[in-house]
């Protein structure tokens, strides 16, 4: 992709982010932080590329270390979000 297409995606995604985040209910701001944490670990894509490539051992090990860190975040972030969201319950309406 050329720089301008990438930049277009980025700018449009910023606007999408702006509107989507304002619509998040304040009660869920902590889960919001936990889940954004998990998804920002999509940086694992870069770590995987580095870890997968042959040739430069230093880069490979840095990549593998990145994969470990990002995995902690991905699994930890989604799991803790799931745990928190399961706690939000509505009032039980008695019959």
């Amino acid at each position: 992709m050329d720089f301008i297409s990438i930049l277009s995606i980025f700018v449009l995604a910023c606007f999408v982010g702006y509107y989507v985040v304002w619509s998040v209910t304040p009660a869920l701001h902590t889960p919001l932080m936990a889940v954004t944490n998990a998804i920002s670990s999509v940086i694992i894509v870069g770590a995987l590329i580095a870890a997968a490539a042959a040739g430069v051992p230093g880069a490979k090990w840095l990549g593998l270390a990145g994969v470990v860190l990002a995995s902690i975040n991905i699994f930890g972030g989604f799991a803790v979000t799931e745990r928190m969201l399961a706690m939000y319950k509505k009032k039980e309406r008695k019959g």
Binding site: I6, G17, I39, V42, V45
Partner: peptide, 22 residues
């Protein structure tokens, strides 16, 4: 941007704006 990867760019923009709004 370095990788030209749209998933990373979209996520980065989302998380970046989320943190900024908070």
């Amino acid at each position: 941007f370095t990788l030209g990867n749209s998933a990373m760019i979209i996520t980065g923009a989302l998380v970046g704006s989320s943190g900024a709004i908070l």
